[in-house]
Nucleic acid binder design. Structure first.
Lengths: 228, 228
DNA sequence: GAAGGGGAAATACAGTGTATCGACATGATG
DNA sequence: CATCATGTCGATACACTGTATTTCCCCTTC
């Protein structure tokens, strides 16, 4: 019996771990959004059967949790600046940039408590930045308020970005010329304040808007820190 | 040929409109969350075939948009108080309470631009509250900042609420005693600031936390309004 | 060599959003 | 009154989803 007659030994299944799985899922989501992530496609990308993933996660939600924590690794700053304000500001901006790299993050942000190692690490360094500056309670309140702000702001920014992309219109064009529905509504005169805002408002770019809102919130935090 | 032999005339299809459809969808979502909303189930609740809905909406996303706008009708205040600060605060609290009544709103909040009639009406009254107090640009920035805050805060609150419900543990219990994963992580000593926050922090109820964060942001807005 | 165990894969199921198509009640027209 | 066009509704179909269950086969251990 020659070599040719003997069948090749069966290919061992490719080794798997959460890291690989999450990487595949993130890649899929980066390319086609969250809805492009299906267990079948993730598994296929790893040359594995779908059910194999259930050894590493027990539900699709858990895969999302892992994906979010993976991105928190990008958000975690390598070294902390001394100033608490810089630290918090950096956290906000890093989160925003991460969401711009992985737009699907906006869909998940704030959706579930972040209990993964990187999420906890981010929480740690954030709270640590306020250590000694404020008592525990005001510190927590500050972090919560700030993160509520940038979570919401990021979500809105991504939402607008998608809307512009979908209609093919820049925000300015959309407001001024085309955007049939909104234009028609504004023309009814039932929304004078809104109309004024839309037509008289100077359009600032998203980053600047994010930054000024952030500054306001940081100002508020600063005011509470100094006065216990 | 008697009456009994003749078949009854065919039952006319039940009349339908967006209002009925949205009401059915909202009811479904209130009972079982957003994932309980399927076009088939919505249609079934209206004694109609699934495909019939496509005369009124062209995609499931649009149904969600209509649902959100429906809730904005609850958020819209009946009469506006004079003070801008009261007005903005009321908007935030009304949105929060709406989300507590319809928890699925948290999943949709900030996810897409709100262009429905009620959403626009809310935007209108909100901007109107700042009319004369601030120039257009700072007014918009104020509204955006504030709504980013409460959007994020509401999402987190609902997320925590669900997590507590799922584990059957109150936040306090979860942090202190059981919650194996978090407890173990904190015990490693790698998260000292976080551990201090968890163990030394006094737990305030969600509404109070929401309100203080809101006050901070409103303070910040007030500071920017007075000083142009 | 035989038996057992464990993990991967195949199959199965109930459900999803949406496209397509056939039938049929209705209103217009002869 | 008969016929035809029209438009709408429902049935069917399709590709896909998350997940439970079953089947199978390789490796280890006697």
């Amino acid at each position: 019996m020659t070599v040719w007659d003997r069948p090749e030994p069966p290919t061992r299944p490719v080794p798997l771990d959460r890291e690989r799985i999450v990487a595949a899922a993130v890649a899929l989501a980066d390319e086609g959004g969250l809805e492009a992530v299906s267990l079948r496609k993730v598994a296929a990308r790893l040359n594995a059967g779908p059910m194999r993933l259930y050894g590493y996660i027990s539900t699709k939600q858990e895969l999302f949790d892992l994906m979010v924590d993976e991105v928190y690794a990008e958000i975690l700053p390598e070294e902390q600046p001394g100033d608490w304000r810089e630290a918090l500001s950096a956290l906000a901006h890093r989160t925003r940039r991460a969401a711009l790299r992985h737009e699907w993050l906006a869909d998940l942000l704030g959706g579930r408590p972040t209990l993964g190692p990187n999420g906890l690490a981010v929480a740690e360094t954030t709270l640590a930045a306020l250590d000694g500056i404020a008592d525990v309670d005001t510190g927590m309140r500050a972090v919560e308020t700030l993160s509520a702000y940038f979570t919401g702001a990021i979500r809105r920014e991504i939402a607008n970005l998608r809307a512009e992309r979908a209609t093919g219109l820049s925000k300015r064009d959309w407001q001024h010329a085309s955007g049939p529905h909104v234009t028609r509504m504004l023309a009814t005169g039932r929304f004078p304040a809104l109309a004024k805002a839309v037509y008289d408002g100077t359009d600032v770019d998203a980053e600047a808007s994010f930054a000024t809102g952030l500054d306001w919130v940081l100002d508020a935090v600063a005011a509470k820190l100094t006065r216990p």
